[in-house]
Write a protein that binds this DNA or RNA. Structure first.
Lengths: 256, 256
DNA sequence: CTTGACCCTCACGCAAGGTGAGGGCCTATC
DNA sequence: GATAGGCCCTCACCTTGCGTGAGGGTCAAG
């Protein structure tokens, strides 16, 4: 044997701690070349080299288990392993960039620039072509729907202008949040959307003047899908939002 | 009280698990509005709101402890908190991008494009202006140095051409690795540089025909710093590498 | 009065080590 | 040849943010 290194020596040379070497021994990632009577660990050239490889992959945030699997499969393809890991890193980097963008937008909103935007997008919207939606609802759900619609109109009309604006702001808030989730590629079925859908359903209830049942909520999703007005509005907010929102609404209704 | 929510209800509405709420209760991040005789947890409006805030910050990878500190400091500045966290995220994203670039370069190198590069940069280098370095060394360290230099030249001359090229490739490897560390903003004093400095010192020993002591190694750093040839070469490899390498060499010599 | 859905409190597990505690080994110096 | 200091060992608990049971009480509906 040319040179036997103790834990401390190998640790110093390699820039890790003794505990790390103990750990790697424990999990079988890097075993000493031999172990003395006194249970001292001794490492040789080969172990030093293996440790270099381990640290190389570890740098990139690879899991120790994955590294072990790589190194212990003889004749493994470094290039492919790296490429695969590269993809994971890219995904993480992208995720961080998304989060940063979201933070930026949130900061802007907190700074109050959002109010105009909301007024812009939402003023007058829900009253304008109400008639068409009513027709569709009645067609689909029969005459019993007519009473509901009448109730709804009375409820809406009875609200003060301030309250109406407040509701529109709430809607803007919710839809903005969902649009961001979409941009972040959060699944429409994800549980984390629930809080926003809950708020959305409550909002619908407010507009209708009576609570929105889960069934009705799922049905509303179909209305959104079927009417170009809604579709156009959502797509203007964020491409793909129509399908995203309606899927989320149905998933939510089915889940709760 | 308007509405009391059970754990399950709050969990479903908010898109988290029951266990998460238990956990938040345990660590004091979100306590129930009140607790029944039967130890059931009941949450109110206020808790729902607080949970929304918690989840908002959690999304960005903020630690629960930090979130608690934020929310429990009354009159805290959301915008500033977000800005600070944004900076952290940006740093992480940047780190990932660096790693990705490093992987890309590594893949390129593994694909064999490095050989030319090495030959390009290193052929003939150490013999060319050897004379000047010698003068400097003698000036600084006195006549005793002359013998060392003579030894060194003999040692170098006695090596085969193949062996010389091999040594140059090793040097290229080490310097490339250090340049990458520099690009990744790893501190020159960091322990993780040790393996490369170890190899570098061994390389110097090979060139000299005798082991390079830690003292000599630290002295060599000064040579690199003082001579424009070295400086130019390192800066061509990566801007700032001269200072980085020499700092690392000295830190390493002092540490081991 | 039973069933099933919900609630509770432990308590272990994960990844990758950090940080001692308590005790043996080695070697240099007095 | 004894003692000091430095290195080595093996437990074994701590960290983050929960997941995942185990074992047992509670509640509303049929």
């Amino acid at each position: 044997m040319s040179k036997e290194l103790t834990v401390k020596q190998l640790a110093t040379i390699s820039g890790v701690t003794v505990r790390t070497l103990h750990h790697y021994d424990e999990i079988g990632l890097l075993k000493p070349a031999n172990v003395g009577e006194n249970r001292y660990r001794y490492y040789g050239e080969a172990e030093l080299l293996r440790l270099q490889q381990i640290l190389f992959y570890r740098e990139f945030g690879m899991q120790l288990g994955a590294i072990a699997a790589l190194l212990d499969r003889p004749g493994f393809d470094h290039v492919r392993a790296l490429s695969e890991h590269r993809a994971k890193l890219a995904a993480k980097a992208e995720r961080y960039r998304q989060l940063i963008r979201t933070i930026d937008r949130t900061i802007d909103r907190l700074n109050g620039e959002q109010l105009m935007n909301a007024n812009d997008l939402y003023k007058g919207f829900p009253l304008e072509r109400q008639v068409d939606y009513e027709k569709w609802l009645v067609e689909r759900h029969g005459d019993a729907m007519k009473d509901h619609i009448a109730d709804s109109k009375r409820a809406l009309a009875s609200l003060s202008g301030d309250r109406q604006r407040q509701l529109m702001t709430e809607l803007a808030d919710i839809e903005c949040a969902l649009a961001e989730k979409l941009r972040e590629r959060v699944s429409a079925e994800a549980g984390e959307l629930a809080p926003f859908l809950e708020r959305h359903r409550a909002w619908v209830g407010e507009m209708w003047g009576r609570p929105c049942s889960l069934q009705a909520y799922a049905g509303l999703a179909d209305l959104y899908l079927s009417h170009p007005d809604f579709r156009a509005r959502y797509e203007r907010l964020e491409p793909g939002l129509t399908g995203y929102l309606t899927s989320a609404m149905k998933a939510y209704a089915a889940r709760v």
